[in-house]
Write a protein that binds this DNA or RNA. Structure first.
Lengths: 363, 363
DNA sequence: ATAAATTTGTGCGTATGTATC
DNA sequence: GGATACATACGCACAAATTTA
């Protein structure tokens, strides 16, 4: 009637019923014979419909026993495909994280299907739709623009319907609280960075934070609250905040240059920086402005990217565990594929002491 | 008879016949009706068999027209999966290359299935077998230990049988000359590096090359031949060569330290270095030995990795096109999937002038 | 432990629908 | 329009595996 062949209609109805949870955990689906009566079709048609569901990995057929709904995630035939959506492949510490994911997956006979969202929700959406098509068995996602609600919530929910486990990494969408995440302790990191500087004798702290991702928002919150708790002066004015689009020309923009001038004018003596990639151009710009580093300004940043050891002064930084982090994400995903319930987890930063934030001589 | 169901027997026979090339290029497979007579089975059984082949991507069914053998590479339903085997994900300039591949693939609704071989042929083999299982539509491979014949030739040939196009990238296996490759002009780069130093007035050149990959072998050959052509002194003794396993502790090994001592003793005034990643520790070691850079020793290396701009002195280097290179590889692969024949190609190096190899004051 | 009942897997014949040439 | 070829659909029979009596 609807132009659609019967077997697809039947498949769709069953698919929906499975998604709605009418069938219990690993329980038996109605018998082919019963479905035949229910839908008034031949057994062949029923079988064709069920073949669709089997293709989607929603059911398991066992001869002599029955057809079982797979509410636990599916057991593919040996090879698992894990989709990986990262913001960027080259930026920051992504390569190391990816390497950790890849190694762990390969050790468990799984492969990684990698795509980059460029931190763009629209691209994220189209990639997710593509990956769904590509039959991945699980998905690890570095959320993009996580400070705001995602327009792609429906995609993530559709994955859940299909029993495809999802894990957020580094950044997650607050509203999708049924999806587990593995993140860094960004709030704690923000606190730690501020406290370290204060304990080393720095008196007036500034901060540079990217604010369209949860990471930056949380680091900024930790920074702010640490200062308040320590009874240090703080005003929103001492923060330079920016979004992803601005990152390339931040320090050539009006707002960025103005901030650099204030740093050069010694309005502050300490700086917490969103990450090493931003710390590096700050250092360069300040040296060009004749600022003595680290004497005039102590800097602590995040990540421990390769560049942090090569800067002059070498950056004191809170190290991201990178490969270990990626491996952990992969482990969680593999466990989810085994049917286990994984909770949220946050990993701790490790302070790497270099030259950019020495203990301040009291002056 | 053999316990196997008829439809699988039929499928197997057809599969073999297709592999043997009994059916021509995009030509029609025998009609369902004809197969029914040939195998003395029902049409349903024939259809079941053909469904298997369709699943494997070996045939296309077109209603009203016929069932066609896909001797040209298959047209998947919109989504192509391209396997990518790189030596390392984080090392050198891999992230940039991968990023180029990924972007280009995504623009053409394809996805990248990424694995790292760690430059180990055994791992390469197991990953290839896994990828074959994972139904990739094409494969881009950075050959590993390409200076020697690969033990995995059979795997590559099996891919060809399945009409899965393969492209070698950066390094290829000489004996597999039916497989196209995209590489850098390593021989020309080796020549260029040597010539640049000579033209700048450097008189006694040394070289550091990794020799288990074709890249290093070719760069060394170019280096050697350029010197000979220019009538410069050259002996094999002026080369420090090493293999992948040694790379981590090269400059802490007896052979490495001895070489550094010779450089420090000003036995040479110019150095061509396999790539920036090796140039960087050389510089550090030499500065610790009290060598004045770049006055005492001019250095040119390869790749233009990020580290090259951050070294002191900043490295003069032959730049690898990285993202563009990756994009080019992806383009070639996509064209191969369209059924076009792609030839070999080598891209040129661009000299990036920095501080490590200034024109030498004649002394 | 065995037999019977249940359930999916394989296979055939037939009829009709629909896209292509 | 007609011929061809794949797609959908039904009904039936028996096989093989599993569960149950």
């Amino acid at each position: 009637m609807a132009g659609k062949p019967k077997y697809l209609q039947v498949a769709d109805i069953l698919r929906r019923e499975i998604a709605e949870g009418i069938f219990r955990d690993g329980d038996k689906l109605t018998t082919e014979e019963e479905l035949r009566f229910r839908f008034r079709v031949s057994r062949q048609t029923v079988r064709q419909a069920i073949a669709q569901l089997e293709d989607d990995g929603l059911v398991d057929r066992r001869r002599g026993s029955g057809t079982y709904v797979r509410h636990g995630p599916r057991k593919r035939q040996g090879l698992l495909r894990i989709g990986m959506l990262t913001s960027y492949i080259t930026d920051y510490i992504s390569p190391e994280i990816l390497s950790g994911v890849e190694k762990t997956l390969n050790e468990n006979s799984a492969v990684m299907v990698l795509s980059a969202t460029q931190n763009d929700p629209a691209l994220e959406r189209s990639l997710m739709e593509r990956l769904l098509d590509g039959q991945v068995d699980g998905l690890i996602v570095e959320g993009c623009r996580t400070a705001e609600p995602t327009p792609n919530a429906d995609c993530f929910l559709r994955l859940a319907e299909r029993n495809i486990p999802v894990l957020f990494m580094n950044a997650f969408y607050r509203e999708l609280d049924s999806v587990p995440h593995l993140v860094m302790d960004d709030y704690g990191g923000g606190r730690r960075a501020a406290e370290e500087l204060v304990h080393r004798g720095y008196k007036k702290l500034a901060g540079v934070f990217k604010m369209d991702d949860l990471q930056g928002v949380e680091r900024a919150r930790g920074f702010r609250e640490a200062l308040t708790d320590l009874g240090m002066p703080f005003s929103e004015d001492s923060l330079l905040t920016f979004d992803t689009e601005e990152r390339m020309e931040l320090f050539r923009s009006v707002k960025g240059e103005a901030f650099l001038q204030r740093l050069a004018a010694k309005e502050f003596d300490g700086l917490v920086c969103y990450n090493d990639i931003f710390a590096s151009p700050v250092i360069e710009a300040l040296e060009n402005l004749g600022v003595n580093l680290p004497e005039d300004l102590g800097i602590i940043s995040f990540d421990n990217a390769q560049v942090s050891a090569l800067c002059r002064p070498a950056l004191t930084t809170l190290a991201h565990p990178k490969e270990r982090f990626g491996a952990r994400a992969a482990e969680k995903m593999l466990r989810m594929l085994e049917g286990e319930k994984e909770g949220n987890e946050s990993m701790k930063w490790t302070l790497i002491e270099r030259d950019s934030a020495p203990v301040r001589k009291n002056g």
